[in-house]
Amino acid sequence: MKVWRGDANGGEFVEFRVPSDPGMVVLDVVHRIQAMHAPDLAVRWNCKAGKCGSCSAEINGHPKLMCMTRMNEFAEGAEITVSPVKTFPVIKDLVTDVSFNYEKAKTIPPFKPKPKEADGTRRMYQEDVDRVQEFHKCIECFLCQDVCHVIRDHDENKASFSGPRFFVRLAALEMHPLDTNDRLDLIRAKQGLGFCNITKCCTEVCPEDIHITDNAIIPLKERVVSAHYDPIAWALRRVRGKRDQFAPPEAEPPSA
C-alpha cells in the first residue's frame, strides 16, 4: 500500500508492505502501518463504522471512507494508494484542514420555527418528515465537498461557493414545513448554487446514499428560478398579490 506522507510544504507516496487479514478494511491496514512501520503517520478516525465521517481519504483516487472500504475489493497483491482529500489543505499525511466547512456552516441562517399551535404543540406530518429525513443522514464526511470540481479545481471559488454538503443542509431547512426563514436569496447570491452544473459527482461518492443532486440541489435551483427568474411565476405572484413573498431571512449570521 502506498500512503501519501507530507505536509503543507509537499510530500510523497511512501510504499509499505504489511500482512492483511480476512475482513480488514483500508483503515485497519493504515493502523497496522502505524503499528509496524510509521508510528508518526497522521490519520483522523473515530467510529470505524461509517457514521462519524472522520476517515475520508482518496483510495486509488476515489473519495471514500477508509473504514468502509474492504481490502477484499482489491485483487491480491494489487497496488493501493491512499492519499488525503485533495480539496482541503494538508496538515500532515492523511489529515487535512476542513475548517472551510465549519466557516460555511456559520453562514446558514438557523431553523426558525412557526409559533406553536393553540394546544401548545407543533405538528409535522409523516409525508413531510419523509422528504427531509434523507438530508439528515449526512455524516459530514465532506467527500462531496472533496469531489466537487467547483472547489476541487478552483480554490478561488471557495469564497463564493458553499458546496454540496451545505446545499443538503439548506434543502433540509428550506423544505422544512415548520421553518419560517427564507434563505432563497442568500442561496442564490452568497451560497453560490448557480456554480453547480449538475455533474452528480457528489451523489456518487456519498457514503449515506443521499441523492444530493436530484433531491437537494435541483429542487433548490427550481425554487431560486421560481423566485428570481421565471416570468410566469413572477406574473402569478403579481396576480395573487404575493409581491413580497421572498423577504430576506431574519437572524442571518453576520458572516453570511
Binding site: V14, E15, G61, K86
Partner: peptide, 20 residues
C-alpha cells in the same frame, strides 16, 4: 519501504479503474 515523489495538490494519476 520505497518512496515516489509527488506534490500536495498535483499528485500523479491515482485512478486504476476504467474511469475514461
Amino acid at each position: 519501504m520505497s518512496t515516489i515523489a509527488a506534490g500536495v495538490r498535483h499528485r500523479p494519476q491515482e485512478r486504476k479503474d476504467l474511469w475514461w
